[in-house]
Amino acid sequence: MSLLTVRDLRVVIDGLHILHGVELDVAATGVTALLGRNGAGKTTTVKAVMGLVPRTGAITFDGADITGLPTHRVVRRGIGYAPEDRGVFAHLSVAENLRLAERDPNPAYDLVFELFPELKQRHRQPAGTLSGGQQQMVAIARTLLNGNRLVIADEPTKGLAPKIVTEVADVLARAAASVPVLLVEQNLALVRRIAGRCAVLADGRTAHQGDAGALLADADAARRLLGVGTHHATPGGDSR
């Protein structure tokens, strides 16, 4: 039984058809990876699920239709979202960024500061002055503060140094033990390490759904769907 199902998702922005019929099933446990080449529509799919772009189709979360809900109601159903550009408020302090995300009466600051002790030390610092990796920590921390039933992370390792990529991957793997994660990712080594299932988009459509490990083990399929040989997978996840 899937936690989140997407059927025939279509998105038109400024007259351009970005998505034409995306299908996606996010498993109720573990990490589901959303893959595809640049421009395939991964970020738009995630934004459409969040209600951040106009969309048609059917999006079901935990049995309930959420297609027409405004973004804040989607989030309140229990979906935490770390966007592609991290969505950190640069002029606000780290503490304010976290406080803004509080929804539960008892936000899980213990967990967050255990995972990211750095954020505790820097909690008065304006988020705009943080490094890229630290900003990503803020973005992920915001999704873990509340008892979410799904976490969506859009390219959390993009532009990060290999060492930080490993840290972020560890956090995601640990989070996935208690909350299912939908992970948009280009780093295939990382996907192989932590993802169970995957969906591959191409030109705004779903080209493949299945087991992530099986897909990445099949060099022909990986090349055809993702345009890369798996042995070319960027380092980072491999570096450990």
Partner: peptide, 10 residues
């Protein structure tokens, strides 16, 4: 036209 849910805040 099919009902399009418009983003809020965007």
């Amino acid at each position: 036209a099919p009902a399009t849910a418009l983003p809020e805040g965007a």
